[in-house]
Each structure stands twice: as C-alpha cells, then as structure tokens.
Design a protein around this nucleic acid. Structure first.
Length: 244
DNA sequence: TTCGGAACGT
DNA sequence: ACGTTCCGAA
C-alpha cells in the first residue's frame, strides 16, 4: 500500500478543477491512506474518533453534537455527554472531554480537523481532505452516484456532506457535469466553492480508481458492494500501477 | 477553554 | 498508528 505525503496533496488540491491528465494518477494518489480506511472492518480495526463523530452527526443524534453553520463545521453541544458516548464505544469508562479534545487536537496535524476560533466547542472537518468513500450514511446527504458515461449507469460510492438533486440525467450535460462526469442530477446545481472543491477531489478519486486497480482490501470491507470498479469500460492501455 | 509535550497502551 | 492519560501554560 502506498503512502501519500501531505504536501503533494496540497499541490493537487490547488490545481485546476476539471479533467486530469489521463496517466497522471497512475503514479500519484491524492488522498492519504487514513482517508480510505474502512470505518468498520469486522473484528479487526477499531472505530476512529472522526468516524464516530460523523456517525453521530449523521444520525442527528440529539444534543451531544450537531452540525454548525458552516460547511463541515460542527458544535459539541454537550462535551461530557459526547465523551461518555465515545468512552462507551471504546470501552474507556473514564473518558472525558479533556481527553477527547486531546484526540481531536491530534487531528489538527493530520488536517482532518481544525478549530473554529472564537466559537466554543466548535471544530470543522476538512472535507476536502477527508474522502468519504468510507461513509455509507451521512443523513442529510443523499448517496453519491458516480455516473459512468460509457455504460450509462450509476455507481453508488458513498455520500458527501451536502446535497444535490437525485434525478438522473445524461442526455444533456450541464457544464458542471462536463467537469464532473460522475455527477448525476438535474441542473442547475448551484454548488458553492467548497462543494466544487470537494467534487474535484471526488473526481480525482474517481480517476484514481479508474486508472489504477485500487487496492480495495476486500469488497466486504466496503459499505457498497458491486461498485463495478472491476468492470472498467474506459479503455486502460496505459502502464498503470497494479496493486493486486 | 484551548493548546501541545510527554509517557504510555494496544 | 491512534489514541489515552496527565498536565503546565496561555
């Protein structure tokens, strides 16, 4: 499994939104390894804190934590209750907010989170860095369909922290769809800047998956089966990285 | 309240 | 590697 360096990510992120050179991603991978870790691999891996937070946010689990005003921002309404829930999940009966927040602060370096300064108990996910392929359920967010133009079929891949129309449309392509061919839905979209940025990352991810044989550990580890990543309708005659 | 070093556990 | 525990500093 390859390791990804953050600086390289940064460069890619700030590059243009849109189609990528066809063989570019055969060597470069946009996202760090942690971003692809399955939330629940049966038995083996433990839940990570950010998984847990998204899970609670996803359920709209009352009181302890909720989404904030900005995209990706969340507010811990009841720090000690959140800590208790986290402690229960991890089997750490003495968990408290002091400790939980230390774990959150470790995420700063990893760029998973940052603090919203001036707002009490308020943090913000860097969704641009956080690929949500792992994430089956983010409540307010419909499932993301990757549209494959060749097979004219949609592939369920995960969800994003914002919503867009569900209806399928492929005859006439909206400019945004031209940029993000995996996008299904009815124009106009009206994405904001962060959403577009996020889409560009998903686009990259899609290209990665098409370009390389993505090291999916085992299909059972993924929330969505039969993603069709094997049935590659896009001809792949470049020398690509094979991880099998 | 928030931060981050340090030692520690798994 | 991903926290947990503890704690002094701002």
């Amino acid at each position: 499994m390859m390791n990804i360096d953050v600086l390289q990510m940064e460069c890619s992120c700030n590059s243009t939104v849109g189609p990528f050179p066809s063989n570019y991603w055969s060597r470069t991978v946009l996202f760090p390894e942690w971003a692809y870790k399955p939330a629940w691999s049966p038995g083996s891996r433990q839940v990570q804190l950010w998984h847990f937070l998204l899970e609670l946010l996803g359920r709209g689990e009352g009181g302890a934590i909720s989404w904030g005003s900005e995209w990706g921002e969340f507010v811990i309404r009841d720090p000690e209750r959140l800590a208790k829930l986290w402690g229960e999940r991890k089997g750490k009966p003495h968990m408290n907010y002091d400790k939980l927040s230390r774990a959150l602060r470790y995420y700063y370096n990893k760029r998973i989170l940052h603090k919203t300064k001036g707002k009490r108990f308020t943090y913000k996910f860097n969704f641009n860095k956080l690929i949500l392929v792992n994430y089956p359920s983010l409540p307010t967010c419909p499932q993301l369909s990757f549209y494959n133009p060749s097979t004219e079929s949609a592939v369920q891949l995960g969800s994003l922290p914002f919503s867009f129309p569900k209806t399928f449309l492929c005859s006439q392509m909206h400019p945004v769809q031209r940029q993000f061919p995996f996008l299904s839905g009815t124009p106009p979209y009206g994405f904001n800047q962060s959403e577009l940025s996020c889409l560009s990352h998903v686009n990259s991810a899609f290209h990665v998956m098409q370009t390389i044989n993505w090291p999916i550990r085992s299909s059972t580890e993924w929330p969505h089966r039969g993603m069709g990543l094997q049935e590659r309708s896009v001809p792949l005659n470049r020398n690509h990285h094979n991880e099998d």
